[in-house]
Design a protein around this nucleic acid. Structure first.
Length: 201
DNA sequence: CGGAAGATTTCT
DNA sequence: GAAATCTTCCGA
């Protein structure tokens, strides 16, 4: 079994974040590093719908030093530090000045698994990439990766095989209790019954 | 310029 | 259940 390392096209990313979040399930997040290629299948995502969504960093509509890249055209990476110690990897979506993004919350390890174990300091396969901070650490994604073009960088997302066969479950997003009515939006998407989802929907 | 909070993880 | 840990953002 081999993975096709064909990066997704720009036109995929310029759709709205909910469409992209669903479309990313079953695709492959890959990072070519000095140690080798590290790659995992995307099994859990969350959409952040910009100025319509109180949970989004870009809700105010004003770019800041941190969120500037969200206001660019879709197809760039948005990586930020959370809780002073973990990085989260997002994909910028939609057109310029429509600041939406998709948070990648969990992967199923595919290749470079020994590198992941080194990066994560654990032997347990299940704990390598089943959470947003964990997968960033496993794939050596940090804030130096912010703003990269996913169509032309060592960091990219490759096509999955059969998008139409992916069974998608929608649920409420995680850890956004501050977001008032937006906390009930069904913007979290997981592959049904996949064991690497961060926690059961 | 100070203070509060955070799209998490890990340990007790 | 709570600590770890520090950048970011907003209000004064």
């Amino acid at each position: 079994m081999s993975v096709q390392f064909t990066p997704l096209k720009k036109s995929f990313y310029t759709q709205d974040a909910v469409t992209v979040a669903k479309g990313l399930l079953g695709t492959y997040l890959c990072h070519k590093t000095e140690k080798g290629v590290i790659c995992g299948k995307i099994v859990e995502t969350e959409a952040y719908m910009g100025t319509e969504d109180k949970a989004a960093h870009s809700y105010s509509g004003k770019p800041t030093d941190r969120t500037r890249v969200m206001f660019c055209e879709g197809g760039l990476s948005y990586v930020y530090l959370i809780y002073g110690m973990h990085c989260c990897f997002n994909v910028v979506c939609n057109k310029e000045n429509t600041p939406q993004a998709v948070l990648i919350r969990a992967l199923e390890p595919v290749s470079g698994i020994e590198i992941m174990r080194e990066n994560r300091k654990t032997e347990k396969l299940k704990l390598l990439t089943n959470g947003p901070g964990k997968l960033a650490q496993a794939l050596s994604i940090d804030r130096a990766c912010n703003g990269l073009d996913l169509a032309t960088s060592p960091l990219f997302i490759a096509e999955g095989k059969e998008p139409s066969l992916v069974e998608i479950v929608s649920s409420k997003r995680v850890n956004i209790d501050y977001a008032e009515e937006a906390k009930d939006f069904l913007y979290r998407f997981t592959i049904k019954e996949n064991p690497f989802v961060s926690k059961k929907p």
